[in-house]
Amino acid sequence: MSALARLLARDLALLLSARRGGGAVLPVLFFLAVAMLFPFAVGPDARLLARAGGGVVWVAALLAAILPLDRLIEPDLELGMFDQWALRGLAEEAVVMVRVLAHWLSFAPALLLATLPAAALLGLDGQMTQSLLLGLLAGTPGLAALGVMVAAITAGLKGGAALAGLLVIPLAVPILIFGAGSLASGGTSGVALCGAASLLLVAIAPFAGGAAVRAGR
């Protein structure tokens, strides 16, 4: 097993363990709680729920993705992990790239599964659930990349977690607009644009995050 594969296995094990990452269960429960509470808040109007429900799922997905933000990079900086990796020739960029993948794996597959009961709770029809799933599949890698990037930038700052939340929200807007917008317009053009915004974030996250880790050293 190569060093990066070992790193991925470690990152994933830590993110999935209840102690450090909050586990895979917590974001999913959070996501389902939002889907469950929304009908109580707006009332049982099925048409309204079906129209607004997709957007609610998207916002819940975004919030679930940034839930473990303060645990993505900072603990490893404090433990001196990044220094030891650097001495072994593992570039910060590679470490951050692996972290993006681990973060995505730790929340996205479970979230996609939980979208099915959430869609049922909100009364979304089959067509809409399908484009919702496609959109989430395209958008969540970007959300994971964004989360890791912002976690790297704010690691070590006082009150970094609050700042990280504020930084993520505006940068997540393109994904949210195209992803949730594809539900209203139908078709796959919105999903494609959402995927493009997501890819862009995945492409820049290792470099921005790696540079942030080095600068903070």
């Binding site: 097993m1 060093a3 070992r6 790193l7 470690r10 830590l14 363990s17 102690r19 450090r20 404090e78 433990l79 001196g80 992990m81 220094d83 030891q84 001495l87 072994r88 593992l90």
Partner: peptide
């Protein structure tokens, strides 16, 4: 190789597993 005040071992893992990660790398 560097040894400083930070052990770079995952605090929640048993020592054998935390050292095993580095042994693998």
């Amino acid at each position: 190789a560097l040894v400083d005040e930070r052990a770079a071992l995952d605090p929640d893992w048993p020592l054998g597993r935390a050292l095993g990660f580095w042994a693998g790398i």
